[in-house]
Amino acid sequence: MNSRDKAVLVRAPFMAGLSGEALVKMLNAASISSAPARHIVFREGMTADHFYCVLSGYVRLYRLNREGREADIRICGPGDTFAECLIYGDDIYRFNAQTAENATLARFDIRTARHLAEQEPDIARALMSCLSHHLLTTMDCVANDRLHTAPQRVAEYLLKACPVDGGPASVRLPFQKSLLAGMLGLAPEALSRAFSSLRRAGVTVRGRIIQISDVKSLRDV
């Protein structure tokens, strides 16, 4: 584990509250690997042996139906963990995980993590806090999908990414627009229509660069 990977890992939400022996034990339990873009980390139905923390790049979590249609669940970036819910849950993966671009991942053996959580209360609390955060985030996501229109979902994402509270701003998407569409629960064509409707609010799109003429106007969408 190089210094950069270690720095990202210790700042990850599930590790940030650890110190001393508990932190050392979790760091020692991690193995680091690199994966190319579109690499399948695991598939739904496979035996769940590990959970992961993203150190660089992005990982897409999704499900497939019998007809091959895909539904995105989450886009994980640096510091995000995934599949840790299986420490106390099922023994098979409930979704697919695929790298969206070249990525570096920290991998933790689920049985080892469960044993460490039983030994170290701080580790157990850190994992439970992470699971609680994911549950609340999922509830917010479901509510937003049901209460907000497509343009409102896009506007909310842009406002969270804005570096300023008012005036003009520029936002660079960290990944392809197709990933953003899945993250917001939209088809790619629905995302395009949403961006088109946001032109009235002063939003223009040039590749991954989103120009916002007035952040305050975008809040009124």
Rank of each mutant, 00 (worst) to 15 (best):
K216C: 12
Q152R: 12
A201I: 01
I75R: 00
A103H: 06
G17M: 02
A97V: 07
C76M: 02
T81D: 10
R172T: 14
D145L: 15
F51M: 10
L55M: 04
H134A: 13
H50E: 12
I92L: 02
R66I: 05
A22Q: 02
A169H: 07
A35H: 15
A35F: 14
S213V: 12
L184K: 07
V54Y: 02
R146C: 11
R193H: 10
C53E: 03
V8I: 15
V205C: 10
R11D: 12
A30Q: 00
H50D: 12
G185M: 09
Q211C: 13
V203W: 02
E70F: 01
L9F: 11
R200S: 13
A155D: 04
M183T: 11
M26W: 01
L180Y: 03
R199M: 08
M26C: 14
R69A: 15
P13E: 03
L23I: 06
R11V: 00
A161V: 00
L18C: 08
S3L: 13
L64M: 10
M15E: 01
L105K: 05
S31Q: 08
D140N: 14
L9E: 08
C162Y: 02
I75E: 00
G77L: 01
L18D: 00
E44G: 09
Q98D: 03
A106K: 08
V203M: 08
C162D: 01
H115K: 13
I32K: 07
S196K: 13
V215R: 11
G45K: 08
S31V: 13
R199D: 04
R63I: 11
Y58P: 00
H148V: 01
N2C: 06
R199Y: 02
L159N: 03
R69T: 12
L184W: 09
L131Y: 08
L23R: 15
Q176E: 15
R193D: 11
E189M: 05
C162F: 02
I87H: 00
Q176L: 14
D165L: 14
S34N: 11
I110P: 05
Q211A: 15
V171M: 11
V164S: 14
A106Q: 06
R114V: 03
E84L: 03
V221I: 13
T47F: 08
R74E: 13
L198V: 01
S33F: 10
R219F: 01
E101V: 09
